[in-house]
Design a protein around this nucleic acid. Structure first.
Lengths: 234, 234
DNA sequence: GGCTGTCTGTGCGCTACCGTACAGATATAA
DNA sequence: TTATATCTGTACGGTAGCGCACAGACAGCC
């Protein structure tokens, strides 16, 4: 939160025409997003739509057993709360702040007013929804076919793209929850990356040293999602 | 295909108001959907939107290595080609006919004309999209945490719900492709179900004998998706 | 300083699933 | 009938990841 927050830091808000943005601005509320904050739980009626500026939010699914897995990750490239305009009002996932920062939020009711004008906002939200679908689909196959080593690389890259610098405040325990694996599995994978000089870390602070190497060690899933997202939301 | 095909066999078409349906009817084309037919490949520009009556279509992701995994399954409860109205025109997945039958299709252009009236069709498609998102998310976590045995049960139930009778024309090889596992893994899981009297099968024809048992052996994922789908699309 | 809680590293047996190989069974074609 | 392709069953070694247990490292607090 070094720079003063600005709605335009969120790519979706920045992509709106001035006309739409100016209608929305009075309803935008800047909120602090501390690590671990839960925006909503599975089944909750959504009250707001969130546009992160420098924070990152994970859409996390928690099972009956308590085991969890990340479905999608949203930063300044997206919005949290698509279920609001989809018409469902709630989802089966939890939205959890994975990297602290800030976000702009709008009351669901106000947001729907703009959405229901069936103009730019509708088009933009539809395209974003497809990007979200792509990411979820890729997560599903990645969970099926790729090793923890590869998935950790993918996950680091996804987070990195949504941050200003190359540092992530994140313990291995939390990463394990996101990936839906054991903490020890993350420790081993991170150890390998460390030995190869790709990352450095200590007590919850990860520094990426060699992004190119990270990309080469990642599975195809990162690149596929990035390419498709860039295509849908230029 | 015993009964004469009728657009109303598709739940989404049946949910439309008469006004909308009558506008759409002249553009609906009944098509045969043979097993193995590919409606579109990853990256293809979608030409039609498909509303299955008694056929079942799998949205399948195929990776660089050739390995695959099913992302979602669509029958008379849904529609294939959401990317058309989302604005992307293409997706990263393949649409494959998993159970033969028929479907009604509409040219993308005609469909978008109705969609862009921003009436019932828009609302319905948005709600369906959320149901699709729910299914994909559940698939992702299921791939991470559940055994082949459980997933086979889930998969059989999903298929069963979209068929008229309790018979599936499906080889173990094909099921393995859908689940993204080895064919031998499916053979073993199916063998267990057979020994328990839950299913019977031979050479590509599976008969479900004890649906209740199947549900009890399945992971929670089936019920979660069904409950949420019923909520979104009553 | 010492105490305590959190984070990371490591080891070990276990299981599910994979890759591979091959054999038997059943349908279709010659 | 025989031949061939397809489908299913079984076996076996290899391995990635799990559950569990515990040890060391580092930070903050008293």
């Amino acid at each position: 939160m070094s720079a003063a927050p600005n709605p335009q830091q969120n790519h979706l808000l920045a992509a709106l025409t001035n006309e739409v943005l100016e209608r929305l601005l009075p309803h935008l509320e800047l909120v602090d997003m501390p690590l671990g904050m839960v925006l909503y739980e599975s089944g909750d009626t959504l009250r707001h739509v969130y546009f992160p500026t420098d924070s990152i939010v994970s859409l996390l699914y928690v099972m009956e057993s308590g085991a969890s897995a990340e479905i999608s990750v949203v930063g300044n490239d997206g919005v949290i709360g698509v279920a609001l305009f989809m018409g469902g009002e709630s989802t089966t996932s939890r939205a959890l702040v994975q990297s602290a920062g800030s976000a702009y939020r709008v009351l669901g009711k106000r947001f729907k007013e703009e959405f229901n004008r069936h103009g730019d906002m509708l088009q933009l939200m539809l395209r974003y929804s497809q990007a979200l679908i792509t990411q979820m689909a890729q997560t599903a196959v990645c969970n099926r076919h790729h090793s923890i080593d590869q998935q950790l690389c993918r996950w680091l890259l996804l987070s990195l793209d949504r941050l200003r610098d190359n540092k992530l405040a994140m313990t291995q325990e939390l990463i394990a929850n996101m990936l839906g694996v054991r903490r020890e599995g993350v420790t081993e994978a991170a150890g390998k990356l460390h030995r190869q000089g790709v990352i450095d870390y200590s007590r919850g602070l990860i520094t990426v040293l060699d992004r190119a190497k990270l990309e080469s060690l990642s599975c195809e899933c990162y690149a596929v999602v990035k390419r498709e997202t860039d295509r849908l939301l230029p």
